[in-house]
Design a protein around this nucleic acid. Structure first.
Lengths: 191, 191
DNA sequence: CTTCTGGTAGACTGGTCAGTCTAGTTGGAG
DNA sequence: CTCCAACTAGACTGACCAGTCTACCAGAAG
């Protein structure tokens, strides 16, 4: 029935776009969905619209929730960081990035909205979290938005670039590297 | 003559690839170079090879030299940071990133080499610079490579993502933001 | 003067692809 | 039973494009 078909199309499109970017052909997507090409066009007016839908889905996948009551600051950040790094630096996150980034100029409005609803929103929440810790006197007073931006940059700045350029990461384990980044970050915000 | 033509082809290809990514057609490139299509194929065996040449050029453009004798640490880093940010976050740097990143899977070897000779090399030099300052007792002892990686991440982590997603930066001036990042970074490495 | 090299214009091949169209099938609602 | 909506396979159009080919031209070297 209709909803299930739409779902299958979106799933097939997602995996196809992740693998080959916008280059994926509609024929290929229909084939992978086990569906006639016409069915794709029955649910989506054009390849572009299908792509936008997939893009929105992909973008939402990086969102990570922050547990609000931070009893142990370091522990809270660590938990967040591990998930965030896994989502953004994992094979799928990197593929998504590769797929979305080159198409931004053709979809500026959508792209901005996608950023705002994912990374932008996460900056906002992190900033709030930091502001709380600062108010409680557990962190040095600083611009919390700036702190949040630095935090995310440290977690997925150069490491993302490395992966985007297919550079294998050195031997350090994920857990160790993440902890190291957190400690480094906290040193900046110590009172 | 031959060398001049080759140059014009590369320049035209560069601006075309920057604008439309790998999608640019060879016809278009030849037209922009004011040259026959055959001339393009006279100098390059295929579009892929032309692309690789352009990619290598683009990658080298982010390289920034570091003055080796750091009398004033903050001043030295600031000078470096301003240029680095301008190169990586400027319109051209962002376009280059958008152009290169999606093609990495088709050119893994070349991509790795490009990373190594640009960003990788810069990490190496920065690390050396930091190591020197640590030896001189002007910075807290830390893993200098890790410090260099964090430094570059902070300079172009989230800000690059924002620009890649066409998110206009808030009102803060480049100079102010850069200085703020440097100060934040140095606080981590204070003795 | 001839020959060779690097250049020109532009036609052509073979392939891919978005999107449309035709003609027919199936399953559920009335 | 009939009708309709969603589906199917597959042919088709029009566009684009990498790469080749033909036929021609200009200038420098011998």
């Amino acid at each position: 029935m209709t909803v299930a078909h739409r779902e299958r199309v979106v799933r097939a499109a997602t995996s196809s776009f992740l693998a080959h970017g916008y280059r994926s052909s509609v024929d290929e997507i229909a084939r992978r969905a086990g569906v006639a090409k016409q069915t794709v066009y029955h649910h989506f007016p054009s390849k572009d619209e299908l792509f936008k839908e997939v893009a929105r889905d992909l973008t939402q996948r990086v969102m990570v929730e922050l547990e609000s009551p931070p009893q142990d600051l370091r522990e809270g950040l660590l938990r967040f960081a591990l998930v965030y790094r896994q989502r953004t630096l994992g094979a799928q996150g990197i593929s998504a990035f590769r797929t979305l980034v080159p198409e931004v100029p053709r979809f500026r409005g959508v792209a901005r909205a996608m950023y705002a609803s994912s990374v932008g929103e996460m900056v906002r929440r992190l900033a709030e979290w930091f502001a709380g810790a600062m108010d409680a006197g557990r962190l040095r007073r600083e611009d919390p938005v700036f702190a949040a931006e630095m935090f995310l940059s440290m977690l997925a700045g150069l490491d993302r670039v490395k992966r985007l350029f297919s550079v294998s990461d050195e031997a350090e384990s994920e857990a160790r590297r993440t902890a190291r980044i957190i400690d480094c970050f906290l040193r900046m915000l110590e009172k």
